[in-house]
Design a protein around this nucleic acid. Sequence first.
DNA 1: CTACATCAATATAACGTTTTGATAAAATCA
DNA 2: TGATTTTATCAAAACGTTATATTGATGTAG
Lengths: 353, 353
Amino acid sequence: MVKRNDYTMRDVARLAGVSVSTVSAVVNNTGTVGPDLTAAVQKAIAAINFSPNEGARGLRTGRTHMLGLIVQNITNPFFVDALRGVEDEAIKHGYEVLVCNSNDRVDLESRHLNALRLKRVDGILLAPTDSYAAREILGQDRAPLVFIDCIPTKASVNCVVTDNFESCYNAVRYLMQLGHRKIAVITGKLTHSTSIDRVEGCRKAMQEASLSLLEETLTQGDSHIESGYRIGLNLLQSPNPPTAIFTLNNRMALGVLRALNELKVPCPGRVSVISFDDADWTDVVSPTLTTIAQPTYEIGRAGAKLLLDLIHSPAERALREPQQILLKSTLCVRGSTGPASGGVPGAVPSVVE
Amino acid sequence: MVKRNDYTMRDVARLAGVSVSTVSAVVNNTGTVGPDLTAAVQKAIAAINFSPNEGARGLRTGRTHMLGLIVQNITNPFFVDALRGVEDEAIKHGYEVLVCNSNDRVDLESRHLNALRLKRVDGILLAPTDSYAAREILGQDRAPLVFIDCIPTKASVNCVVTDNFESCYNAVRYLMQLGHRKIAVITGKLTHSTSIDRVEGCRKAMQEASLSLLEETLTQGDSHIESGYRIGLNLLQSPNPPTAIFTLNNRMALGVLRALNELKVPCPGRVSVISFDDADWTDVVSPTLTTIAQPTYEIGRAGAKLLLDLIHSPAERALREPQQILLKSTLCVRGSTGPASGGVPGAVPSVVE
DNA sequence: CTACATCAATATAACGTTTTGATAAAATCA
DNA sequence: TGATTTTATCAAAACGTTATATTGATGTAG
C-alpha cells in the first residue's frame, strides 16, 4: 500500500452516511450542522485520517493561503532574520511562505515572480535586486505586493524599509565627533535604493561639516565579502589612507576586517571601522565591530503584516495610498571605532539610539 | 480595475476560436496541434497575458510541483546553505520550495508537517528537531520523505547526512597528535542523531588512546550561542581546565570564543578550540577558528535530488531499500589549535581531507 | 387548519485544468 | 473506388472542494 492517503470528502460522507455538503460544512464549521451529524462526521474524519485538499479548496475560493517571499540573497543573515519575521506572521494567520532566492540576479528574480504567479500566491514580499528594474514590474497586475528593504526608484509603493538616510547621517556624525575627517565609504551596488539612500545620508553629514571630499573616497562594492576585502586592501594601502572606513553592509565589513587583519593595521588605532547591519559575530571578531543594527526581524514581520492587510481588504486597498513604513535603526558602538589620530576624543557611548 | 488577472483557458479558446482542449494541448505542447492553430493560440495567450493556474492543474494531475523543507532553525547558517542546495535543485526540475522553520520545537515541526500535507506537496525534506520523536512520523503515509542532517533513531530511512562519527574521530585524533590529553567536548542536544554520532566518534578516538576520561568533560549544550558561552565560562574557570575544547556545532563555538575573549585566556596558548561547522567569520575572529566543514550546500542538493528521484519513480520506491547518503567533511586547520602545553608539537597540516 | 417562516440537510453547479473517447477530415491502401 | 488507417480537433467527464438553490420537515402565526 504505497499509495498516498488521498481520501476525499466523498469518502468521509459515505462513511458517515451524510452528503458531501454536510462534510464540508462541518470541516469549515459553519455552525449549520446538527450536533449528532457533526459528531458522526468528525468520527469519520478521524477514522480515515482525512485532511482536506487545500489545492481544490483554493481553486474554488480563489485563496491559496500562500505568500511568496523573494530575497536578494538568502546567504545574507539580514534576509534570514526578515524571513523569520515573515514566517512567524504568516503562520499566525494560517499562511505558508514560498521562499525564493534571486541570488542578486534580476533574471532569476523575474523567473521567481512568474512562478509565484503560476502558483497564484495570495501576496508577494519582494526585496528587489535592482531598484530600476523593479519599476517595470509595477504596472503588471498581480497579487498584492509589498517591498521590503529595497524599493523601486521614484515610485510610491507599499513597503517596509529602514531609515537608511538618517542612520547613515547619524553614523557619520558620530565618526566626525571622534575627530575623523577623512572617511571612506564602501557602498553596495548603487542600483539598490538602500545604497543610494545611505550614501545620501553620509553626504549630507559630510557637507554640513563642509567636507565635500566624499567623492574621492566613495567606492562601490557589490555587498559581498570579497568586494569588501578587495576594496579594503586598496584603501589601506593607498598613499593617503582614510582614518575611518564605513561599510554599507555586513558582508563587506567581514571583508574589510579580513584585509585589516592581513595587513596588521591597528584598529581603531590607525583606522576606525563601522558597518551597517549587525551580526552575531560582531562581538567576537577582532576588533569587535561597531555597527548600525537594523530591525531585521521586524522588517519581515511588518512587511508580512502589511501584505496580509492588503490581502484581506482589497476594497480599501484600491482607494488607499500605498503605505510606506520606515523603521529606525540602532547604533551599536564597539571596539572598532575610536578617536582619529590627533582628533577630538570625546565620550564614547556604549549603545546610542 | 484592481481585479486580479484571472484569465482562463476558456478566454484564450474563445479569443483564438478553438476549443479549450486545444489550448491545453498547446500549453503542454503535446505536439498534436497543427501549426496554424498553434500560432493562433499562442497569439491569444500573449494578447491577454494568460498564465495557467497551477492549482487547478495540480488538482487534475495530482502533482503540485512543490517541495516542503522543514529545518530545525533557519538562524543557523548551516541550514541556509542546505536550503540553497535544495532550492537550486528544485528549480532545475520546475519545483518550488515551501520553507518551514520549526525553531527547535517538535510541536511546530508537526504543525508544519500537517500544513505541508494539506498543501499536498509532492515531497518533504526534513531536518527533524528530535530523533526520537521523528520515529513516530515514520509510519504515517504521506508524501515521499527524505531526512537531512539528522535522522530518526534506529530506523532505516532515506537520508543525506555528514559522516559525523568519522569526522569527530579524526578531529580528536588530530588534537591528540598535538599532545592534548584533556579534551572537553560540548555537545548539542543528545536527542539529535548528529550529536549522538559525533560524541561516539570522539569516544572511540579517546578510548583507542586509553583515555576514557571523556565522561567528566562531556557537557551538553543546546546548539545555541548562549549555551556555548555559559559552558565555555565554566570549563575555563574550573580548577583543572581542559587543554582543548571541541564544540560540536558552529553556534556554540561562537559562544566559547566569547567566553575566551572575555576571560582573556590565551588561545591556542593555554587552550585549543576546534568546532564542527565552518562559517564565513571563522577566519576573521580572534583567534581564527579551526573547524570541521560540512558539505552544507551539497547536503541540501543531494537531499532534494534523492527526493525528486523518489517522486518520479514511485514504483521502484516501493521495492528499493531506503537510501542512505553519507557525505564526507573537511578539517580546516586555522589558528585556534596548537600544541598542548608540554605536549608533542608535530606537523600541523593546513587543510586535511 | 392553512399559510408562512425557520431550519437542517442535500443535490447541483461551479472553479480551471487534463484526459479520454468521439468525430470528422484527410491520407493510405487494396 | 471503397475500405481503412491516420490525423487534427473537440466535447465531455473528471479532479476535490465550496457556494447556491432546493427540498422536506418542523414550528409559528393568523
